[in-house]
């Protein structure tokens, strides 16, 4: 992936999140405080706006800058979690060899560590972890990545939320998609679109 593709990835993510801003916030209203959509749009808008300043940077540096921008501009719990994901990806992209498998695995580990979450807690990790595992097992098979991300997101509907404000609802949280998992799905969906452009 070159830095131009990273830019496309971020622009596509932003437009997906923007289109679905109200849905994301409404999901968050059910189990949280109702601002996930606003926060994610603010963060990814800041990332897209910063790109002209990162023209000289390589893929690794750009991903790390995306990470720090998300920490700073998304705020809340999503900022450090998505931010950590990108910082870990960026570190892995210092070498192209196996960067996706290594980076996504370390990103999922970083998210688990930072958020003190496990797979099955109905959080964004339930999308990041299966995506990392599928790339680890099968390489960058983008159709598989799409499927893993989508299944991971849908899976949070059946799960009881164990972390974040949603956890306070206990069994009442079952039946709702986790907003962070949904925005993670958009992120990976945008990645798949970027990487498969022109293939079909």
């Amino acid at each position: 992936m070159n830095s131009h593709q990273v830019q496309q990835w971020m622009e596509t993510t932003l437009s997906l999140i923007k289109e679905n801003e109200t849905t994301l916030s409404e999901l968050d209203q059910t189990i949280g405080d109702g601002d996930h959509g606003v926060n994610m749009v603010r963060g990814f808008q800041a990332v897209v706006d910063e790109f002209p300043n990162w023209e000289q940077e390589n893929t690794s540096a750009v991903m790390q800058k995306i990470g720090t921008t998300l920490v700073s501009k998304v705020g809340g719990a999503s900022g450090p979690l998505f931010g950590t994901g990108f910082m870990r990806l960026g570190a892995a992209f210092k070498s192209e060899e196996g960067a996706w498998a290594d980076g996504l695995t370390k990103a999922a580990e970083g998210i688990a560590q930072r958020g003190k979450v496990s797979v099955g807690d109905a959080t964004l990790l339930d999308v990041w972890d299966p995506v990392a595992k599928v790339v680890q097992a099968k390489g960058t098979d983008w159709a598989e990545v799409e499927r893993a991300a989508q299944d991971g997101m849908n899976g949070t509907k059946q799960l009881e939320t164990k972390r974040g404000r949603g956890a306070l609802l206990k069994e009442r949280s079952i039946g709702h998609l986790d907003p962070g998992a949904v925005s993670s799905y958009y992120l990976f969906h945008a990645l798949v679109q970027t990487m498969t452009k022109g293939e079909n």
Binding site: V38, S72, G75, G76, P80
Partner: peptide, 12 residues
């Protein structure tokens, strides 16, 4: 002071 009901970022 973060955004309304949203933690400020680590940089703040």
């Amino acid at each position: 002071a973060g955004e309304v009901f949203t933690s400020p970022g680590a940089d703040q």
